[in-house]
């Protein structure tokens, strides 16, 4: 039963901009409707049967869970560094599996073709070897020692640079990336994608960033991330099958797909199969 694992994770259902007191709204989580009301500081989330669900406000979003034994929400330490600029980028609906959205976020090989002129460009297509591991203590997937040539790595970048990346998957529907911060080389910029699984074949992505950038206007920061994510959306809605195949025979990876391979293996091992295809079709 693919919902079982998923019900005990926390999911974003609103950001501050969406929470207008007196204007509750309906959304969907794991195929079920939810009512979201209250204020951003004191949100109320109600299930269809009238049950009030647990909530917490973290990382610029309202989080909830429907299960009876929720796992704790993962920690992003940089969220407490007050000199960062925190940028919630709104909600984007995508007709794809929540897991496909996360996997796309973990992939760098598509940069030259999908994010042309920003995150990559031909002929700089090569992906050098990097490290991927499942950190058993935290039960997270980590990919480290990644480097990629980027024409405009961030809004704050003034020239093409060799960007360094680390990726982290703290929960099946969340990916966090740490990348070179052009104005502050000793620190990482943090960009995350929090995915709300609306159904197995439909999700809402809530991109969020924690950056060091005192120069760029706020609206530029939001749009930089929205531009990139909306480029991905047109890919995500055209991947077939819609669900993420976990049978290794269904799609053929190559060396640069190690993060995706380990992510799929990790999901399968945990039984985190909501949004996944577990048998070959």
């Amino acid at each position: 039963m693919s919902r079982e694992y998923a019900t005990n994770d926390w999911y974003p259902v609103a950001d501050a901009a969406r929470m207008i007191p007196g204007h509750g709204f309906t959304t969907r989580l794991l195929g079920e409707p939810l009512e979201v009301s209250g204020s951003f500081e004191n949100p109320v989330v109600t299930a269809r049967d009238g049950r009030m669900l647990p909530v917490q406000v973290r990382y610029g979003h309202v989080w909830t869970t429907t299960g009876s034994a929720p796992r704790p929400l993962f920690d992003i330490a940089e969220a407490d560094e007050t000199d960062r600029t925190f940028v919630p980028c709104g909600a984007v609906q995508v007709r794809c599996s929540p897991l496909r959205a996360v996997e796309n976020f973990l992939d760098i090989a598509h940069f030259p073709f999908v994010h042309t002129g920003i995150l990559g460009e031909e002929p700089h297509t090569q992906v050098a070897p990097y490290k991927v591991e499942i950190r058993e203590d935290a039960d997270e997937v980590w990919a480290t020692q990644i480097g990629f040539h980027q024409p405009q790595a961030a809004k704050s970048a003034t020239e093409a640079i060799e960007t360094r990346y680390e990726y982290r998957v703290p929960a099946p529907t969340t990916a966090v990336l740490y990348k070179t911060c052009p104005p502050k080389p000793e620190a990482w910029d943090v960009i995350a994608i929090f995915v709300q699984p609306v159904a197995e074949d439909m999700c809402i992505a809530w991109p969020w960033m924690a950056l060091y950038d005192d120069v760029s206007p706020y609206a530029d920061l939001v749009q930089f991330q929205q531009e990139i994510f909306l480029q991905d959306r047109s890919i995500l809605e055209n991947q077939k099958p819609t669900l993420l195949p976990l049978d290794p025979r269904m799609e053929i990876p190559t060396r640069c797909d190690l993060t995706s391979v380990v992510y799929r293996r990790w999901l399968k091992r945990k039984g985190a199969t909501y949004g996944a295809l577990t048998t070959a079709a």
Binding site: F113, V114, T116, G117, E121, E122, P123, Q226, E227, I228, F229, L230, Q231, R233, S234
Partner: peptide, 16 residues
């Protein structure tokens, strides 16, 4: 120039 949702044709060997 492209925008999100509209991609370059990518037909040239290395240009956009």
């Amino acid at each position: 120039v492209a925008m999100p949702g509209i991609h370059y044709r990518h037909e040239g060997t290395s240009g956009t």
